[in-house]
Design a protein around this nucleic acid. Structure first.
Lengths: 104, 104
DNA sequence: TTGCTCTTTCGCAATGTTGCGAATAAACTG
DNA sequence: CAGTTTATTCGCAACATTGCGAAAGAGCAA
């Protein structure tokens, strides 16, 4: 037996992920995730009874930026921004890797 | 009562967050968070019995990038990258805002 | 020691995210 | 209705992250 039969397996897995899953699924999941984040920000802000402009000031930016973040179609969410918002509202961003349903 | 006594409150909160907290605390928390992410990626990869090069191939990048991500001192973690890694390893990235201990 | 695999570090171009003003829309108040 | 506040959209410069190769450092086995 060779020392690394793993190499081929990696390629196979790769094909599974990027071909097996129609890649549209991946996009749908991402879209949903982005939607959730947008909603989360909106809820956090309204729960704190702040306008977009007020929240923007808190984190040192402008209302148009907040608006963009709360747009469900926005795909550019970043950890940095989420943390800024969370920090200003006495929250923190918790990040976990969780196994996918229907794993293998 | 005025309609928006909130404006001043916002400024006050701002000062609390950015001055009250010595700002060093914020950095410490961030550093710890980054460390956790780096460790998480490392664990995920080793648990899958992959080398950095193999994981890199899975997500379409190079080993040096993975190495950078697993460095505890790296401050540039992004949602996009976390998702790519999670996706390749049959996981997903769960993001939540959670209230800070010692809230007000 | 050599040879092999894996990891780490560096630098810079390419890509992606944010900053921000201005203009418009939408919602609410009186 | 006009007037006020809030939310949304657009464009582009500034900044941050990623891509990627090359070179060197560890670690392990023969």
């Amino acid at each position: 037996m060779a020392k690394t039969p793993t190499r081929d397996a990696v390629e196979i897995l790769h094909r599974r992920v990027y071909e097996g899953k129609p890649a549209r699924l991946k996009n749908l999941e991402e879209a949903r995730a982005n939607e959730e984040i947008a909603r989360g920000i909106h809820e956090l802000r309204t729960a704190a009874a702040l306008t977009q402009t007020q929240l923007a000031r808190l984190i040192g930016t402008t209302a148009s930026v907040i608006c963009r973040l709360e747009d469900a179609d926005y795909e550019g969410h970043s950890l940095a921004m989420l943390r800024r918002i969370a920090g200003a509202l006495n929250q923190r961003v918790e990040i976990r890797f969780v196994p996918n349903r229907r794993s293998a």
